[in-house]
């Protein structure tokens, strides 16, 4: 059977007239963990947002046979932990419950089975003790684990994570990586923006090296080379 692919073709995006992404093309198989690597301002977050249809862009994104807008409930997005208002009056449990929104839909209230799914996810990320805590009381690592639990309950096919390890302690990072590997083994596709070049080869099956356009993409062992990294990090602006 032919492997299903996630394909991005001629994707461009700009912000107030300045190009942020230019003619991005790549193709990765579904069911792998993909690292999106590049310097600050390379357009990594913009790439994820464009793939999710959160910003205006030109070009095409195809997930298997479908376009992203046809797959809304199958896409999960974890933006950077610092982008949240942690003083918002919401508990850990309620944040995770929001991940069930696509399966609940309009006007429906969560039932016992939904509460069980939330409890299971919190147990998996080792956060069940803090389920009633307001989110401001959490450490950076605990907060990221809560966001992972939210992704777990959503049970999406394609996951987009924007720097999930920023401000995270080593234990939390190990916990999150183990969960993401399990998801990957269960056939989920994972795109992750990542900074620590030392762990790239251990974490990712495939990498996309990005600096406004794709410098190289493919299996980590083939692509994550000194020459490609130099080209990615030394490159000037794409005109």
């Amino acid at each position: 059977m032919e492997m299903e692919m996630i394909k991005v073709s001629h994707l461009s995006a700009s912000y107030l007239g300045t190009p942020v992404l230019k003619n991005v093309n790549f193709e990765v198989p579904k069911g792998v963990m993909v690292g999106i690597i590049g310097p600050n301002g390379a357009g990594k977050s913009t790439l994820i947002k464009a793939m999710l249809g959160l910003i205006k862009s030109n070009g095409q994104v195809q997930i298997g046979e479908k376009m992203p807008h046809q797959l809304k409930s199958q896409l999960a997005y974890m933006k950077q932990g610092s982008d949240y208002d942690l003083n918002f009056p919401i508990s850990v449990k309620d944040v995770v419950m929001l991940g069930l929104y696509p399966s609940l839909g309009l006007l429906k209230r969560p039932k016992r089975k939904h509460h069980k799914r939330v409890a299971d996810a919190l147990r998996k990320v080792e956060m069940e003790q803090l389920k009633d805590c307001q989110i401001a009381a959490l450490s950076g690592g605990q907060w990221q684990r809560v966001l992972i639990a939210r992704i777990l309950v959503q049970d999406a096919d394609v996951l987009f994570l924007d720097e999930p390890f920023t401000g995270v302690d080593a234990d939390s990072e190990a916990n999150i990586v183990a969960i993401l590997r399990e998801l990957r083994d269960a056939g989920k596709s994972i795109f992750m923006i990542y900074h620590d070049l030392d762990s790239v080869t251990t974490y990712f099956d495939q990498v996309i090296l990005l600096n406004k356009t794709v410098i190289a993409y493919g299996p980590t062992a083939d692509v994550f080379t000194d020459a490609h990294l130099k080209a990615t990090y030394m490159r000037g602006d794409v005109k």
């Binding site: 999710l52 959160l54 809304k72 409930s73 896409l75 999960a76 997005y77 933006k79 982008d83 949240y84 208002d85 918002f88 919401i90 309620d94 944040v95 929001l98 929104y101 696509p102 609940l104 309009l106 209230r109």
Partner: peptide, 16 residues
């Protein structure tokens, strides 16, 4: 539910 979701995390709501 919708008010909570869109007030707390508008981006996620858009993805959904």
């Amino acid at each position: 539910k919708e008010l909570l979701l869109t007030s707390f995390d508008e981006t996620m709501a858009t993805v959904y």
